[in-house]
């Protein structure tokens, strides 16, 4: 499965593959101190809207963009749950660009966006949609809101 390989959760425990396998997964690099941080609200609404239908958001805390995710795992988890009521899983803090990029992002960043641009994650809250079969089917840049029609249509196309 493309998502769960070697991933630990924000609590330091290995993410149970069953949480992700067979589901459509929207992988999003998140940050707590970004102008786009309110996108957590839309992400949580996606989770509530599609979660029972075989979908999950997977948040990936990352501090590579202006240092906007500086907190400890406990601080990040606390922020997400108390400020935004986020119920979707978070990974450990990962690097999404550069020499130390996590293998998951090696695969994700090889996929182009709607304009045909692959490569580096541009900023916080870039989104990648993975089908239940493990295929990376769409990439949405940070400015695309979680509940944008192009995101929800793509999710609905791949729900199991």
């Amino acid at each position: 499965m493309v998502v769960a390989d070697g991933l630990s959760g924000i609590d330091g425990r290995r993410i149970d593959p069953a949480v992700l396998e067979g589901n459509a997964v929207l992988v999003v690099n998140v940050a707590s101190q970004c102008g786009l941080t309110p996108q957590y609200e839309g992400l949580e609404r996606l989770q509530e809207r599609y979660g029972a239908a075989g979908f999950t958001v997977l948040g990936v805390p990352c501090n590579q963009f202006a240092g906007q995710e500086p907190g400890t795992p406990e601080e990040i988890q606390q922020f997400c749950s108390t400020t935004y009521g986020a119920s979707f899983p978070l990974t450990e803090k990962l690097e999404v660009n550069g020499h130390h990029r996590h293998p998951l992002y090696e695969r994700l960043t090889a996929v182009p966006d709607a304009e045909g641009r692959a490569g580096e994650v541009e900023w916080n809250f870039e989104k990648f949609l993975i089908s239940p079969a493990g295929e990376i089917v769409a990439r949405f840049r940070p400015q695309v809101e979680p509940e944008d029609d192009q995101v929800t249509r793509a999710i609905e196309r791949v729900l199991p």
Binding site: Q64, F65, A66, E95, N97, G98, H99, H100, W123
Partner: peptide, 9 residues
């Protein structure tokens, strides 16, 4: 974008 870190500002 170096061996030390990748960071964007």
């Amino acid at each position: 974008d170096s061996g030390e870190q990748w960071f964007k500002m």
